Computed example of a mutant assay.
Amino acid sequence: MKFIDLFAGIGGFHLGMEQAGHECVGWVEWDKFARKSYQAIHDVKGVWNASDIRTVRSTEIPRADCWCFGFPCQDISVAGRQKGFTSGKRSSLFFTVTGLIRDLEEKDRPSYLLIENVKNLLSINGGFDFLKLQVELDEIGYDVEWEVLDSAQVVPQHRERIFIVGHLRGQSTRKVFPIVKGNREVDSRTDSTNTLTTRYGEAQGAGSYIAESKPSQVRQIGNISSSNSFGGNPQIGRVYDLEGISPTLSTMQGGGQEPKVLVNLQVRKLTPRECWRLQGFPDWAFDRAKNAGLSDSQLYKQAGNSVTVPVVRLIAERMALANEARR
């Protein structure tokens, strides 16, 4: 399938989709440092791109089978101000994307939408915002399914994110979720929001990226902060066991907030390379970004902002199978 990569960051969607055999035909990213990394990592010479989604016209976007996007989450995240999906200035960019789709003739609309965001999208404003998202997608012709997936099942990082797949009506697309092995669902449960959280360690087609499914645990073994250090924030001083998994990587703006680990009785913070690895990026991708002149501060930030590549790959492989089945 051909895909468009919106709010592209450093290209976590791009890499995961590409690993599943899909082709990027366009991308949009406004941050100049992320653009620098993206162009260093991916082969995008001659590929359509834009820097500001708000200035893009639907007529200039290449036709594609799938649009991928993780729209900004600062207004939704538990760590943010939680202005909400509909009233937050940045998160409302979701409607900029749906507006572009509205401007397309139905025959030119993507058959799939692949959307990622923080788990809090399900519950913020009493669930009204998530309902609004579903209504909006319904109005532009898409039926939706979703899963909350934890990156800890593919990489040593606890990172729960909601993934939403939109299916354009009339295109005979097939469901992607739940992730199954054979005819049974893999170790799933229903959470308090009545959505399905799937443990997909043994999922069919996962390849070498998926480790054996087992209980995940963030192992905190100490704290080096005090009432006078790190601004009195105990979270910043937490120390984790290398044998456990990492807490969720954040954008780590301002420095000093990177996860810390105990190695040979010495406490140190994770390196930028290690943070990229926790998001499933191969070392060659990190090296290309680093060699393009990105600072450690930017490399930390970019890791925290990205999607987890192997999670995207797994979903993209399911989409590939579904796409082949409908031909």
Rank of each mutant, 00 (worst) to 15 (best):
M1T: 10
I4Q: 06
G11H: 03
G11M: 02
W48F: 01
R57S: 08
R57W: 01
P62S: 04
R63T: 12
C73W: 02
D75H: 04
S77Y: 00
A79D: 07
K83M: 12
G88W: 04
R90G: 00
R90K: 08
S91C: 04
F94D: 03
T96S: 04
T96K: 05
I101Y: 00
R102V: 00
K107H: 08
S111G: 11
S111C: 09
I115Q: 10
V118L: 08
K119V: 12
N120R: 13
D129L: 03
Q134V: 04
E147A: 11
V148D: 09
H158M: 15
H158F: 11
E160H: 13
G166P: 09
R169H: 04
V180S: 05
V186P: 00
D187P: 00
T193L: 12
L196T: 11
S208Q: 15
Y209N: 12
I221H: 13
F230H: 12
G231I: 06
G232P: 10
N233R: 15
P234C: 11
Q235L: 12
I236W: 08
L242E: 15
G244Q: 13
S250G: 09
T251E: 03
G256V: 06
Q257K: 15
E258H: 10
V261I: 13
C275D: 07
G280Q: 04
W284P: 07
A292Y: 12
S295A: 14
Y300C: 09
A303C: 06
A316S: 12
E317M: 12
R318P: 00
